[in-house]
């Protein structure tokens, strides 16, 4: 209701001023000048570029959100930048919003957004040197993971590897590396979740089969190595259907009245496999 009322107000005004666009205006040239001077042209150009980068399913809702954020950040800029927590919280929200705008597989768009997020996080401390400190950095990472519904233990395992100390300055490359890692981890967990869903067909997933799948997955992950491109082919071949089926079959053959593996357990085991490949930062 709150959001609707100003819109209604505008609508009311529209009724009073009928269709004609150029009403009382100094003609099309004057209007173009006005739009440029008021910054409308630039604002819309940026908005359109952002839409094209993110390609949202519902561009109208996306634009509404985009302009709301923009209005907020303008109000923040003009309203002074005290280190009080609401402003800081808003910066954080905005940064995370930017980070989520585009999926990381859309490389250019994602990198662009990461750099905007970095700028908007580090721009806050105007009195001191600009830069991002370890505390905000950890908070951002933690929030990304939480919103992606990763469990607390996985989050703390991840942070142990890529956390900085609260007072340390965080360079851009590190920020990009860590946020990307978070997003990839979240996707990995959701894939692992659907994998578990398949194993869990009868309502309870057999522990041995799960273990076999996890072992195969682990072997594949271990085999991959950034420096040896062919290792990715090897990793892929380890996960090819017959190979995986063989492992699962073997696990089923030795089946005794075995126990079951819970979804939580499966996910955290899978996440641990992923985390072994995350390079710790120093």
């Amino acid at each position: 209701m709150m959001a609707a009322s100003p819109a209604v107000k505008i609508v009311e005004k529209r009724r009073l001023v009928p269709v004609a666009v150029a009403v009382g205006g100094p003609g099309p040239a004057g209007e173009a000048d006005f739009l440029r001077q008021a910054g409308v042209t630039g604002m819309l150009r940026e908005a359109l570029l952002t839409v094209l980068e993110a390609r949202p399913e519902e561009p109208v809702a996306f634009l509404a959100d985009y302009f709301e954020k923009l209005a907020l950040s303008r109000a923040e800029e003009t309203g002074g930048d005290e280190p009080g927590s609401p402003a800081r919280q808003q910066r954080l929200d905005r940064a995370i919003w930017y980070l989520r705008l585009a999926h990381y597989s859309q490389r250019t768009a994602f990198h662009n957004n990461v750099s905007i997020a970095y700028e908007c996080l580090s721009g806050g401390v105007k009195k001191k040197r600009p830069g991002l400190n370890g505390r905000i950095y950890s908070e951002v990472l933690r929030r990304i993971c939480r919103e992606g519904a990763a469990s607390e233990e996985i989050i703390s395992l991840l942070l142990k590897k890529i956390q900085c100390r609260d007072y340390e300055a965080v360079p851009y490359d590190l920020f990009r590396y860590s946020t990307l890692t978070c997003f990839v981890l979240l996707e990995f967990i959701s894939k692992a979740d659907s994998l578990y869903h398949v194993l869990d067909d009868s309502g309870q997933a057999d522990k041995r089969v799960c273990q076999a799948v996890l072992d195969t997955l682990g072997e594949a992950i271990m085999a991959s190595d950034l420096c040896v491109p062919t290792s990715y082919l090897e990793a892929g071949s380890k996960l090819r259907p017959d190979c995986l089926a063989l492992a699962m079959d073997k696990a089923l053959l030795t089946r005794r009245p075995s126990s079951f593996m819970s979804r939580r357990e499966f996910l955290s085991e899978a996440a641990v496999l992923f985390l072994t490949k995350v390079k710790p930062i120093n």
């Binding site: 609508v11 604002m43 509404a64 302009f67």
Partner: peptide, 17 residues
Amino acid sequence: GIARFFTEYFTSVHQGT
């Protein structure tokens, strides 16, 4: 504020009003 105007415009488009 222009950004606010656009926010309201696109919100009302989204809501259909």
